[in-house]
């Protein structure tokens, strides 16, 4: 019975599980543009979106953003808490892209002083209309203070995601978020992926995922590329040697030298004892940053010199 969906959407299937209150999200390869008016398949798209969502939900949980993820439960399958979903999409825009320039006349790429937040009603028959706080209240969906709470939560999530994607070489133009009720409070649900975010590669500025699909691209690479950018690459090791400055009394060195001589190592002329610090540094840092780390914390410039070994 586990493969008969509870519900099937345009891009995902909701599958039942043995555990009450838990469902599996199955990510399909379908891409849906213009509110379902254009639907096509890109092989690997579902797996890519499941993978990125998994990573993003884990990251957000670490930042204290409650979300529905329980764990990965298979290829393109995420086990999640079953939420009572709000029929609302919350979209945060960092700059004018996607539908914004056409709808409101912004210059494409125009950066806003503060990110814009929009609420849309999920209803394909009405083309997912933009709704105001008053609409949401009048429709009996949310109280004003709940709308404000969701707005500030969405802005906070957007801030986390912008930095997170940026550290992986991805520019985040906009993100679409959906929330649902778990008990008496709202948590983040649905997916956060190259299919719900508009994103570009920082280097070269090429559109990725959905943004590329909107520009007519159909090759699997547009989604797969996001997965490879998001891969956690182990950083490179840097070595910092901190030692007492020339001429500064070094009691540890002196005592160690005496001990070596007592052991018969009469050839030892001098010993200076310092610290050896090994750091793992993520890509994108610089020697200047390392110098700053040394000056501000790793060494005390009054009494210590430092040397950095790092091939940047």
């Amino acid at each position: 019975m586990a493969d008969v969906p509870l519900r099937e959407g345009k891009t995902k299937r909701l599958l039942p599980t043995e555990v009450p209150g838990r469902i599996n999200l199955y990510f399909k390869d379908e891409v849906s543009l213009q509110n379902g008016k254009s639907i096509f398949t890109i092989p690997g798209k579902g797996a890519a979106c499941a993978q990125v969502s998994l990573q993003v939900f884990r990251f957000l949980a670490q930042r204290g953003v409650e979300n529905h993820l329980v764990k990965e439960s298979g290829d393109r399958l995420l086990l999640v808490d079953e939420l009572e979903m709000l029929p609302i999409e919350v979209v945060v825009w960092n700059f004018a892209c996607g539908s914004l320039p056409e709808r409101l006349g912004f210059e494409p790429g125009a950066v806003f002083r503060e990110p814009l937040v929009e609420f849309f009603l999920k209803d394909d028959s009405k083309d997912d209309p933009l709704v105001t706080v008053e609409h949401l209240e009048a429709l009996g969906l949310l109280r004003r203070e709940e709308v404000e709470a969701l707005r500030s939560r969405a802005l906070k999530i957007n801030g986390f995601l912008r930095d997170y994607f940026d550290s992986h070489g991805i520019i985040l133009g906009s993100v679409k978020l959906e929330f649902g009720k778990l008990g008496d409070h709202f948590v983040l649900g649905d997916e956060v992926s190259p299919d719900t975010c508009l994103m570009w590669e920082k280097e070269g500025g090429k559109p990725l995922g959905r943004m590329a699909a909107l520009e007519g691209r159909r090759e699997p690479e547009i989604y797969a590329r996001v997965v490879s950018l998001m891969e956690e690459k182990p950083g490179k090791e840097a070595y910092v040697y901190v030692r007492p400055k020339q001429g500064i009394m070094d009691p540890q060195g002196q005592v160690t030298m005496r001990a070596l001589r007592d052991l018969g190592f009469s050839e030892v002329e001098d010993v200076r004892v310092g610290r050896y610090i090994i750091l793992r540094i993520r890509e994108g840092s610089s020697r200047e940053r390392l110098e700053e780390m040394c000056r501000r914390l790793l060494a005390n410039p009054v009494i210590e010199d430092y040397e950095i070994r790092w091939d940047d």
Partner: peptide, 17 residues
């Protein structure tokens, strides 16, 4: 206070260790 630069200088290990 020394590390914060609110007073000048620094502390070394005691001569005797």
């Amino acid at each position: 206070l020394l590390e914060a630069g609110l007073l000048p200088g620094a502390m070394l290990w005691n001569e005797s260790l």
